[in-house]
Structures are given as structure tokens and as C-alpha cells.
């Protein structure tokens, strides 16, 4: 599906759809006078940020390249570092949220606990996917080294 969408449009489109989903969730979950006006506000804001992101994606900058899905290896690294920082901040915010809600109102602690647990699980998943899950491979020399130890007693 992605190949049908021009690269420059991909991320702005996904962010817009994410915003529209929030508008939809608000429309479903709320009632009363504020239901539709706020739904429209969220939807318009989502479309607006999508247009801004699309314009930004056309710029000759690192941010534009990342938004426009045409980042080279250095720009991808910059994006990964920014994402890692966002993850650290999210984990810290969740931890602070847990601490504060435990001290103030313990019944509200679960969203922060869930966010803390999910972010921590994401980190473990990352370790598993990108390295620590690497099985120990036979290098073809270990057995020979064991067979002919240079140390004699």
C-alpha cells in the first residue's frame, strides 16, 4: 500500500489519519454540547498539521528529509537518536507520573504504570531484536583451542 503513496505524503498522511482517529474517538466517547464543535476543531487541526508537515517535508533540511521519507543514512541516524530521546523522555515522564499519582491519588496510577511497563517492554523488545538475542555462533576455532591448550601443568 505504501508504494502507492508518494514518499513526501506518507508521514503527513499518517499523522493526519492519527489526528482524525482522535477526533473520531472524541465524537464517539463524548456527549452534550461540546461533542461536535470539539470534534470539528480536532479534525481541522489534524488536517492543518498534515498540510504543514507536507510543506515541511519539501524543504531541503534534515527534518524535511525525515518527514518526506527520503532520509539518507546520517539523517536516519538523527531520526533514530531523536526517537531514542523521545523514548527516554516518555519513560521518565511515566515514572514521574507513577511517583506523583502514588503520592496524590493512587487510583489513577494505572495509566502511568501501563505507559511505564509498555515503554520498558519496548526497550527489551529492541534489545532482543537488535542484538542481545544474537545466538553464540561457533567460530570454528574454539574446539581446536580446547584441544591444544598452550598451558601445561
Amino acid at each position: 500500500m505504501m508504494s502507492f503513496i508518494p514518499p513526501r505524503l506518507r508521514k503527513p498522511l499518517y499523522r493526519t489519519l492519527a489526528g482524525l482517529l482522535i477526533a473520531g474517538a472524541w465524537a464517539i466517547g463524548s456527549s452534550g454540547a461540546g461533542r461536535w464543535p470539539l470534534t470539528v476543531v480536532i479534525a481541522v487541526a489534524s488536517l492543518g498539521q498534515g498540510v504543514i508537515r507536507y510543506a515541511w517535508a519539501g524543504e531541503d533540511t534534515d527534518e524535511g528529509a525525515l518527514l518526506g521519507s527520503r532520509a539518507d543514512e546520517r539523517q536516519q541516524l538523527v531520526g533514530q537518536q531523536a526517537l531514542a530521546l523521545a523514548g527516554k523522555i516518555a519513560l521518565s515522564a511515566a515514572y514521574i507520573g507513577v511517583l506523583v499519582t502514588l503520592a496524590v491519588k493512587q487510583s489513577d496510577v494505572w495509566p502511568f504504570l501501563a505507559m511505564f511497563a509498555i515503554t520498558g517492554f519496548g526497550y527489551l523488545l529492541g534489545l532482543s531484536n537488535y542484538g542481545s538475542g544474537e545466538p553464540a555462533a561457533d567460530d570454528g576455532m574454539t574446539a581446536r583451542h580446547h584441544a591444544r591448550s598452550p598451558v601445561s601443568w
Binding site: 531541503d60 533540511t61 534534515d62 528529509a65 532520509a71 539518507d72 543514512e73 546520517r74 539523517q75
Partner: peptide
């Protein structure tokens, strides 16, 4: 020529 960005 290198298929990278000018910034890179």
C-alpha cells in the same frame, strides 16, 4: 553523485 543529502 553519492545519493545522499547536501547536509550529509
Amino acid at each position: 553523485g553519492l545519493a545522499v543529502s547536501r547536509q550529509t
